[in-house]
Amino acid sequence: MPVTVRRAVATDAEGLSRLAALTFPLACTPQTSAEFLAHHISTRLDPASFRRHLADPACVVLVAVDGADGADPVGYTMLLGGEPSDPDVTASLHHRPTVALERFYVHPDHHGSGVARRLMEETIAAATATGARGVWLGVSEENARANAFYARHGFDQVGTKRFHIGDAWEDDLVRERPLP
């Protein structure tokens, strides 16, 4: 399958929003309430939110598009530059300056197809182009598939962080990799 990875533009906002609504719940734990998911999707993953991200110079959004139809993205990532605001993350990181890999999602129909590998290669290149020395992310300790994927791509576990989601506290692993 020919997949193109490119920087997202404002006209991608609708497709990104649809993909985010589908994939975000897959990364959440079973404890995440349906009410929280619905609220988060409608207020943080809506097209207007994506347009704001795309207009933010500290934010890099990459989109993977299937060359066969190209209608909607089959994956996307979002990098956010700057120091993390979470003190647990700040204390865990070894490489500065840093960039956060805030989002990394692939349509479930494309899992195992190589889209994620290709998207990660382009994301690491984009992170390197920011001038950062390291890239970090937070991933649920319960998400074995994602943790294995990130480990294969050089992200070492360097700490943990707690965050409030809906009515519950959850734990994420903090993973980091150096950039060339």
Rank of each mutant, 00 (worst) to 15 (best):
62 L>P: 06
177 R>V: 01
123 T>Q: 00
44 R>M: 11
147 N>L: 12
47 P>V: 13
162 R>K: 11
92 S>H: 06
13 A>D: 06
80 L>W: 02
162 R>Q: 12
65 V>N: 00
14 E>L: 13
82 G>K: 07
36 F>Q: 12
52 R>N: 08
129 A>T: 04
81 G>H: 08
30 P>N: 07
80 L>N: 10
41 I>A: 13
9 V>M: 06
34 A>P: 06
123 T>M: 05
12 D>R: 06
38 A>C: 11
21 A>K: 14
115 V>Y: 01
179 L>N: 09
177 R>E: 00
125 A>L: 14
55 A>D: 15
134 G>Y: 08
10 A>D: 14
129 A>M: 03
97 P>C: 03
92 S>W: 08
112 G>Y: 00
115 V>E: 02
134 G>P: 04
115 V>A: 08
90 T>E: 11
112 G>W: 08
52 R>H: 10
56 D>F: 14
109 D>A: 14
65 V>R: 05
21 A>L: 09
106 V>F: 03
66 D>R: 12
83 E>G: 04
36 F>L: 03
177 R>P: 05
82 G>R: 12
161 K>R: 15
53 H>C: 02
36 F>D: 09
79 L>N: 05
122 E>H: 14
116 A>T: 01
145 R>F: 00
63 V>S: 13
86 D>Y: 05
58 A>T: 15
59 C>Q: 11
11 T>D: 14
104 F>Y: 09
51 R>E: 15
130 T>N: 03
20 A>M: 10
74 V>Q: 08
88 D>M: 11
131 G>T: 03
118 R>A: 15
175 R>V: 01
17 S>P: 13
123 T>C: 03
136 W>T: 00
10 A>P: 06
76 Y>P: 00
73 P>A: 11
165 I>K: 02
33 S>N: 10
153 H>R: 10
33 S>R: 03
118 R>K: 08
91 A>Q: 12
27 A>T: 15
167 D>K: 11
99 V>W: 07
143 N>S: 07
139 V>K: 01
84 P>Y: 05
76 Y>E: 05
12 D>G: 08
95 H>Y: 15
35 E>S: 10
93 L>G: 01
113 S>M: 02
18 R>I: 10
12 D>V: 02
85 S>H: 13
105 Y>G: 04
124 I>T: 13
160 T>M: 01
101 L>G: 00
76 Y>R: 12
167 D>V: 08
83 E>H: 04
132 A>G: 01
107 H>R: 10
158 V>F: 06
140 S>Q: 07
